[in-house]
Design a protein around this nucleic acid. Structure first.
Lengths: 355, 355
DNA sequence: CTGTTAGCGCTTTCAA
DNA sequence: TTGAAAGCGCTAACAG
């Protein structure tokens, strides 16, 4: 009733026959004499009154709004992360201001800058991968921030919530090994021009090389290999980004090297699909001739034939947990980094090695 | 420099040797004498000063923030819509407060209520499908709202930005017809217990039946059939939701009816995948024996075999356009409903009927 | 064009 | 407990 826009503490107080301070207290959960509380409650009800958030903020209250900045919103990983974050935020009574960087580093800076204008209680931030030149975020000094889905090589001073990518690489490889495979190709996304094959192992030992989760995956691959006493062969490593087409061309590249391989560890289910597509087109059967591991456990993997063996990352949980961690930081509780386990999913793109 | 939290207009004004009004004007793009402007600019720079958004809001300024409420964030359709919205919002200098209903009607009400607490310039709202009981949103009276991705059967008084679902059904069916198919099954999601087969046609003529985009798709199907002088056979219509498994079971249901069919119009690419899966498992080849149309043109459709013929809906553009329309409403320009065209994508899940 | 000043709606002392 | 009143940081009306 009445035009909400003009309803203010004064109106409510007047109607209830108390002071505005009392109404304010009542609405903020401060003890008020029961008789008054009843009257205030009535008045509030009658006007359908709500505190003006802007006016509260000016007094330094919390906004109950957090920012979430993601590289893209329409990639299944981040969409699921966001959905998880939204669920937890809702449970906390918080709203989410969302920002996408559209995969571009330029936009990232702009988005963060724009967010600095907003009144946020905190920020969840997933930098665009490959952020060799990290953004100097001044907002980070004043705002509680947690880094999501990126390892400690970026913004190591901030709390992180991330997946065990090393474990993912390890699990994939070890599983393939346990199936009897020995010539396991690895599709990596980190192979920059400056990286020689020889240098790769050294790079691994250098922390802070950038947001290369693929690097962790690679170290997991190496660890598993080592465990089985298999020596690492650079020829088996192919540079490959994360898409379907990337998988196709990387598979072609591998084929063109004319070396023996019995299985492939990829960095994404899309890549695995591309690989399978190319392999089968060459008359190479998956998994009979070559086993292929996906990564990420997308819906897609259950739909294509063969169904993908893959590594499940619980991005939904990661989103929820990020909001929880941020909540802790905001409320000045101790926050520890959280490393979420990944899980091996066995389906049909992998099989025992035929001898 | 300096603790930002405490920097205020007064500080800047003092440093620049002008009044706070001048600083305010300068920052708001109101003309200021050049000499002063320079000094103010310096001071602003020095303090890295920014207007306190909360304080502005209290004076009734725009928040440059819009809300976007979607049924889910991790469905490709909505994720892409959101990404489009985010891009346009960024261009407008607006931020997006995002809300997910997690596909549940209960959450929807809660989310909207929560949003009413926030200071938004406007709201883009995609009700959960099947909202037979539409939410009475009081915020709608005060807030500029545009409905996205839903037809005029819901909230007809508000501006809409939506896809031509009727056209999608029409295009799919007509294409199949042009290929020589005559027994075209239709997988519909709108078949509620109350709907008898006889009643369906009547339902079509009753506007405002609910958010059943599938109903529009069905009317497109009927129109195409009519154009070719084919009579509609209720036996060919199967109730089916939007997922992969739904497609599988609907296909089984169709098979169990023991009637002849040469092609299928589905409501989603996931469904088409499920259908193909089931059909092929029964030794029915797609497209040789049966042609299958997907809907939505998801990435998935390019990956599976056979690649899906489908209908492309530009959800990204829909998202962008929604923000534009909302922008118009906010700035009190006339806003017309916008119906976005869909496009027929021909790939490999359909083919000429063998005679 | 500039400065002074009165609020915006709320929270929070401070006295009572 | 409660109410009166002093701001919070900003915008805008007003007078110069």
């Amino acid at each position: 009733m009445a035009n909400r826009k003009s309803v203010t503490l004064v109106d409510v107080a007047k109607y209830a026959g108390v002071s505005i301070a009392t109404v304010s207290r009542y609405l903020n959960g401060v003890r008020v004499r029961p008789e008054l509380a009843v009257k205030v409650a009535e008045a509030v009800e009658k006007f359908d009154y709500r505190l003006n958030p802007a006016a509260r903020l000016i007094k330094g209250q919390k906004s109950e709004t957090i920012g979430v900045i993601l590289p893209e919103l329409d990639h299944p990983y981040f969409a699921t992360l966001l959905e998880g974050a939204a669920e937890q935020a809702r449970e906390f009574g918080q709203s989410i201001l969302v920002g996408s960087c559209h995969g571009k580093h330029e936009v990232e800076e702009q988005t963060i800058d724009q967010f600095a204008h907003n009144i946020l209680d905190g920020l969840i931030y997933t930098p665009v991968a490959k952020s060799v030149n990290l953004i100097e975020i001044e907002a980070f000094r004043e705002l509680p921030v947690v880094i999501a889905a990126r390892d400690k090589s970026v913004y190591p001073e901030l709390p992180h919530v991330y997946q065990d990518t090393h474990g993912g690489g390890y699990l994939s490889t070890k599983y393939l090994l346990s199936l009897g495979h020995r010539k396991i190709a690895f599709f990596a996304s980190f192979w920059e021009p400056g990286f020689t094959e020889m240098g790769m192992l050294d790079i691994l030992k250098t922390p802070g090389t950038g947001v290369y989760s693929s690097l962790n995956r690679f170290s997991g691959y190496l660890e598993a290999l080592q465990e089985f006493g298999i020596s690492y062969d650079p020829k088996l490593v192919i540079k490959c980004s994360y898409g379907f087409e990337d998988g196709k061309s990387a598979a072609k590249e591998l084929l063109s090297r004319m070396i023996e391989f019995d299985s492939i560890v990829t960095a994404s289910d899309y890549v695995a699909c591309g690989v399978i597509d190319t392999l089968e087109a060459q008359g190479i059967s998956v998994p009979n001739d070559v086993s292929v591991m996906g990564y990420g456990n997308l819906e897609l993997g259950k739909i294509i034939k063969p169904q993908l063996s893959t590594i499940h990352q619980n991005m939904f949980e990661l989103g929820k947990q990020s909001v929880r961690s941020l909540h802790d930081v905001i409320h000045e509780k101790d926050t520890e980094d959280i490393l979420l386990d990944v899980e091996l999913i066995v389906r049909d793109s992998t099989s025992k090695k035929e001898i």
